[in-house]
């Protein structure tokens, strides 16, 4: 059973009543959900680029100038989806007691000697896009690298134009930064 665009829009916004929400949670999953979701989201953004995939809250992989880039709903672009978008964001690193206490007071505070709470901020709109809590020194986590071509060609049966090999290219950024350190 399909979920209507109106219901899906309200579901995502947290505005759908509990009865309907519960029915969607508990019911059989709809095969056309992805298409409906992309339609809903495409109508909500102010820019014209085609959404290929919603990546996370606020972020999408879009077709832009023949490339596939990560874009915020505010319009800010983070570059090729195969490079971890977090490296092109702003960061607030909570790595001392004072900054951690702002979020986790008293007994709830993690130990800054061991734990770093990284907040990734969109440079365009100031939205908090991700909170990463990891050991100090841990490389930034590349949460999700969707295989867009396999998905569109083999799972949806409508291939995208111009196949791009799905590989992690984040090292291109860190390598450039590393060169500057030499």
């Amino acid at each position: 059973m399909s979920v209507s665009k109106d219901d899906l829009r309200d579901l995502y916004a947290g505005r759908l009543g509990w009865d309907k929400t519960k029915a969607i949670i508990s019911g059989p999953k709809d095969d056309d959900r992805f298409e409906t979701a992309v339609e809903v989201l495409q109508e909500q953004v102010s820019w014209p680029e085609r959404i290929l995939m919603p990546l996370r809250e606020h972020l999408y992989v879009v077709e832009s100038g023949g490339e596939r880039v990560v874009k915020c709903d505010c319009g800010h672009e983070f570059g090729d989806w195969r490079r971890n978008w977090k490296l092109s964001a702003l960061i607030i690193a909570r790595d001392d007691e004072a900054s951690l206490e702002e979020i986790y007071p008293g007994l709830r505070r993690p130990d800054p000697a061991l734990c770093e709470v990284r907040e990734f901020i969109c440079p365009g709109c100031g939205s908090l896009l991700d909170v990463e809590s990891v050991p100090v020194g841990c490389p930034i986590v590349f949460d999700a690298l969707p295989d867009l071509d396999t998905f569109y060609a083999e799972w949806l049966g409508r291939p995208l134009q111009g196949v791009r090999r799905c590989e992690d290219l984040t090292h291109e950024i860190t390598s450039r930064w590393g060169q500057a350190e030499l």
């Binding site: 986790y104 909170v131 990463e132 809590s133 986590v141």
Partner: peptide, 21 residues
């Protein structure tokens, strides 16, 4: 224990540290 698990989603925070008293 002292490192919060990385379970925040899409800009949400992980819950605070667990503790004993």
């Amino acid at each position: 224990e002292f490192i919060l698990p990385n379970v925040g989603l899409g800009g949400g925070y992980p819950g605070g540290k667990r503790f004993n008293v």
